Computed example of a mutant assay.
Amino acid sequence: MDEGDERDFAEYFAAKRDSVRRTAYLLCGDWHRADDLAQTAFVALHRKWNRIRDRAATDAYVRRTLVRASIDESRRPWRRERHVEQLPEPEPAGTRMDDQVATRADLLAGLRAVPPKQRAVLVLRYFEGLDVAGVAKVLGCSEGNVKSQTARGLANLRDALGEEVEAGG
C-alpha cells in the first residue's frame, strides 16, 4: 500500500473507530470482545483497502465484517457457557417494561439473551438504523430472512425482558 492509501486508511479509522466499537459492543455485550471484533473488522479492511474502488461502500464492508466476526466468535464452544453466582429469580407478574428496562444495562442483558444472528439483525435495524434491504445486504441473505429474524429476535427479546417490546424502534 502506498503512503496516500495509508493516510486515507488512517483518516477513515480515526473517524469510524468509536462507532464501529459501539456497534460491536451492541452485538456482543462486552467491551473487551467489542475491541477484538472492531480490530478484526479494521484489519480485514486494511488488507483490502487498496482494492476498494467505491469508498462509499466502506462502511457497509466494515459492518458486514463486524457482524460475521461476531457470529463466528459466538459459535466458539467457550462462548456458549455462562457462569453465574446465583440462579435468576423469576420476575413478579405485572411489572411494566419501562420499569424493567430502566437502564441501558438491562437492555444489553436482554440483547445478550438473543441468539447471535437475531441480535445482529436487531442491532443493525434498530441501533444502526438500516432498513430491511440494508440489513439483508450486510448479512448476505434475503429480505424475507431479515424480516423473520427480526420477528424472532424481538420475540426472544420480549421473553428476556418479560413483556411487550415495541417493534417500531
Rank of each mutant, 00 (worst) to 15 (best):
M1V: 08
M1Y: 08
D2K: 13
E3L: 14
D5A: 15
D5C: 09
A14K: 14
S19G: 09
V20E: 07
R22Y: 04
T23W: 03
T23L: 13
A24C: 02
Y25K: 04
L26G: 13
L26P: 10
G29E: 03
D36T: 12
A38Y: 03
A41M: 03
F42L: 05
F42D: 04
L45A: 07
L45E: 14
L45I: 02
R47A: 08
R51Y: 10
D54S: 08
D54K: 00
R55P: 07
A56C: 03
T58P: 01
Y61N: 03
V62K: 03
V62E: 04
R64S: 15
T65E: 15
L66I: 04
V67N: 06
D72Q: 09
D72S: 11
E73W: 12
E73V: 09
R76K: 09
R76A: 06
R79S: 04
R79A: 09
H83Y: 11
E85F: 12
E89C: 05
P90W: 10
E91D: 11
E91A: 12
A93M: 04
M97G: 05
D99L: 08
Q100V: 15
V101M: 10
V101D: 04
R104H: 12
A105W: 09
A109K: 13
A109I: 08
P116Y: 02
K117E: 09
K117W: 12
Q118L: 08
L122G: 08
R125D: 13
R125W: 00
F127D: 15
E128Q: 13
L130W: 01
A133R: 06
K137D: 14
K137A: 15
V138Y: 05
C141M: 03
C141E: 04
G144A: 14
R152W: 12
G153N: 02
L154H: 00
N156I: 06
R158D: 05
D159V: 15
A160W: 03
L161I: 04
E163N: 11
E163G: 12
E164D: 13
E166Q: 10
G169E: 03
G169C: 02
